[in-house]
Design a protein around this nucleic acid. Structure first.
Lengths: 239, 239
DNA sequence: TGTTGATTCAAACTTGCGTTTGAAAATGAA
DNA sequence: TTCATTTTCAAACGCAAGTTTGAATCAACA
């Protein structure tokens, strides 16, 4: 309904700059928007605050991104893309045991979320998306969350000897994911409960190892506990 | 700076009703506000929507609660209180092993959050508070979260044979809490990832048992794995 | 019944938001 | 330089939100 003219203006303008300095104020806006969106959420963030941080005029957002949601979507896309390349970079070697691969996956996830790879506001952006989804959430799940979760299901399925779709596999996967999320989602809660905790890179490694140990203790014994012939299912969780 | 008159009006008005029918429109506003605040968060909720749901005038909020934040605080307090009585009601017997007590605690927590005890919007209210804390968050943590966490630390400390303040105890506690939170905080994520999951009371029990089994596998073996004399600490997480 | 105070209501007020505007400034090619 | 295009800017617009107002309504009691 709107923003036709400015969108066009932006597209044409982009071709001028090859790779060196791609539109300074546009970049400045993105840089300033990231942390603010992450701290306040989409709704509570005002474009005036972003523009003040970027040293730009309020109209600049409309000119470069069409509207507020356009800017936000771009910020989220950028965040997702950064997390993706980090995930690929941290992808473990395929020639190791499923157990070690799970450990590597946990470490990569925790690192990409709270390590030195990404600025720490990326995870806060996620927390807001979960609490109050914007139209941009779907692509986040499709591009980032679902592939990782799928891989996690296969991995755990191989460890406990059940198909990825089995309820037990899913319960275990959520148990692993939950432990990781505990260090991400409830930010203010964690600092209230464990004020001395500092998330330095070394300590992120330590936490990742704990989560792996904690989880593998159950997973490694699953086969012998439940037998390999007919896996026990007390009742189906999916109907 | 404002709302002096209405606050007084409310206070005086309150004395008329002993216990029987405590101000119908006030109750109606609280009832209508709960789910709406939980769905949209504090910021995005409009008092006009609440009043429409309660069949009241917009000025009623100012009259009965002073302002929007006053209403929200009351809703949160009510939610915390309800969760508290539920926690007490579900408090396990003291004459059982720490392991069984942990299982009971997990079950109680999951039940109070997603079982039949509380309407399901209470947990969504929490998610919003974590993502974007309001001034009312502190009392929520102090009255509800911290006592439960303290009890969890003592319990786990007894199981693994370490003091509650030990880093290992804390890591384990967060591992347990994280698994529970995974079913609470990332609402839209969970339904995307496991669409068939339905949180009926029976299945909540099943999930609680899984979390207990999953966690106790590691906790019960902790002593023998690490030895009881000098517990291994690869490095301190708190400084 | 008349009076007093509590409670409701429609309407207006105030503020801050995202957005738009139209002109000015900057840029680059002819 | 001249001209066309892109980019910036201050200002204003329209709207929706929380809040306030003052009169109308209701309830209880003398």
């Amino acid at each position: 309904m709107n923003s036709n003219r400015s969108q066009l203006g932006q597209k044409v303008a982009r071709r001028k700059r090859p790779t060196a300095a791609p539109d300074p104020t546009r970049e400045k806006l993105l840089e300033a928007a990231g942390p603010i969106f992450a701290n306040c959420g989409y709704q509570a963030t005002t474009i005036r605050e972003i523009c003040a941080g970027a040293g730009a005029n309020v109209a600049a957002i409309n000119y470069h991104f069409g509207d507020k949601l356009g800017l936000y979507t771009e910020v989220l896309q950028q965040s997702v893309r950064a997390a993706q390349v980090l995930a690929v970079h941290n992808a473990p070697d395929q020639n190791i045991s499923p157990e070690d691969m799970l450990r590597a996956l946990i470490r990569a996830r925790l690192r990409s979320i709270n390590g030195k790879g990404l600025p720490d506001w990326h995870s806060r952006l996620l927390a807001h998306e979960f609490a109050q989804p914007t139209p941009a959430l779907r692509q986040l799940i499709d591009k980032l969350t679902r592939p990782i979760y799928k891989r996690l299901l296969e991995l755990i399925g191989r460890i406990i000897g059940l198909p990825p779709s089995d309820d037990n596999t899913r319960l275990c996967a959520i148990s692993v994911v939950g432990q990781v999320l505990a260090y991400v989602l409830p930010g203010p809660l964690l600092t209230e409960i464990w004020p001395e905790l500092r998330m330095t890179p070394d300590q992120v490694e330590r936490i990742a190892d704990h989560i792996a140990d904690f989880s593998l203790s159950y997973l490694k014994d699953f086969r012998s506990r439940h037998g390999t012939i007919t896996p026990v299912r007390k009742q189906r969780l999916s109907k």
